[in-house]
């Protein structure tokens, strides 16, 4: 079984973990902001998919992957705004709306891909982001291998997540967000604009999930393929919950999920006598087990999923 140990304790697993965790952690932070303000966001999947598509679209038409990233953030934000209008203004059930958004994003991106590229499975290659190799950091043994060379979005993503934690737990805005999700009426009675906070958070969550999606299409690959988010939005929601609605917690959870994914991928190539399909299941099974354990203990924001109307509570 020394082959198995080689597979698990390979330093490249950690490099791959960071690579794969970034998009999930970004979307998980989006989920944390949305849910801390009281809006359930199961639409992360659709927001990521929209971001992945918009990224390729922007890069395709402008030739600049960075403009593609901007379009992805905007596209995710638009999807977030749709969820916000239905969930906040029209008081639709958050989960049903989120699922609707996922279906909408899947259908819309597939249709637009066919309309623009005349292809059914995947788009043409577009200009991708490439990698940054950080001078100094890349030369440190071990750490350099793990962190030294990555897509620029990995570094941007990690910085954003740290910033997101500061915003949520150290700024007046973050306090208002947490107050809104815990007790919207209390927030209202101290003059906090509950709706504005919720709109901001849900749209922000769309932007972050969109950025995570763009990572899939402009950093990991250089094209868009049908339904390429492949459940990562749901994993992000799981990471958000497992991470206690905290951007850093979400990052940790994403690392855990991605680490098992990295091992799974390595196992596939290591000729371990197990059906590939079973190996591929491992990260998902782990997700289920962790969530089953974590959900029991975790306590969501008290007003999560509830509708609030100023001046109508009796």
């Amino acid at each position: 079984m020394s082959g198995f140990a080689d597979v698990v304790f390979n330093i490249n697993n950690l490099t791959a973990t960071i690579r794969m965790a970034t998009p999930i952690a970004l979307a998980a932070m989006g989920g944390a902001f949305s849910e801390r303000s009281g809006v359930v966001n199961i639409g992360l999947e659709g927001m990521m998919l929209a971001g992945a598509f918009c990224g390729v679209l922007g890069s395709h038409f402008t030739g600049s992957p960075w403009l593609g990233i901007l379009l992805a953030v905007a596209g995710g934000g638009v999807i977030g705004a749709i969820l916000a209008v239905f969930a906040i203004r029209l008081k639709a059930d958050h989960v049903v709306t989120g699922v609707g958004i996922n279906i909408l994003a899947s259908g819309a991106t597939t249709w637009l891909m066919q309309a623009i590229w005349k292809r059914k499975g995947a788009t043409d290659m577009v200009a991708g982001l490439g990698t940054w190799s950080v001078p100094g950091l890349r030369d440190i043994p071990v750490l350099g291998t793990i962190l030294g060379v990555h897509s620029p979005l990995v570094y941007i993503g990690l910085a954003l997540i740290a910033l997101g934690w500061v915003v949520m737990f150290r700024t007046p805005l973050g306090l208002r967000i947490r107050m809104t999700g815990e007790h919207p009426e209390a927030a209202d009675t101290v003059g906090i604009n509950v709706r504005a906070v919720q709109y901001f958070c849900v749209i922000l969550s769309g932007c972050l999930a969109g950025l995570g999606g763009a990572y899939l299409s402009l950093a990991q690959l250089n094209w868009f393929s049908k339904d390429m988010s492949a459940g990562r939005g749901y994993m992000a929601l799981a990471a958000c919950i497992f991470g206690g609605w905290n951007p850093l917690g979400g990052l940790g959870a994403s690392f855990l999920f991605s680490f098992t994914d990295a091992i799974q991928m390595r196992m596939q190539t290591a000729q371990i006598p197990l059906a590939v399909e079973i190996i591929q299941m491992i990260p998902y099974i782990l997700t289920i087990l962790i969530l089953a354990g974590a959900v029991v203990r975790s306590r969501p924001p008290a007003a999560l999923g509830k509708h609030y109307e100023s001046g109508h509570g009796r």
Binding site: T171, P172, L175, M179, H183, A187, V190, R299, A302
Partner: peptide, 30 residues
């Protein structure tokens, strides 16, 4: 106004509940 059903977020601290909406700031932070 002190409401009959308290307008307090149970999981936040006393200070957080008191200052929410009129937070003292320093360099953008609470």
């Amino acid at each position: 106004m002190v409401h009959q059903h308290f307008m307090l977020a149970e999981r936040l601290t006393v200070a957080e509940n008191i200052v929410a909406g009129c937070e003292p700031r320093r360099r953008g932070l609470l």
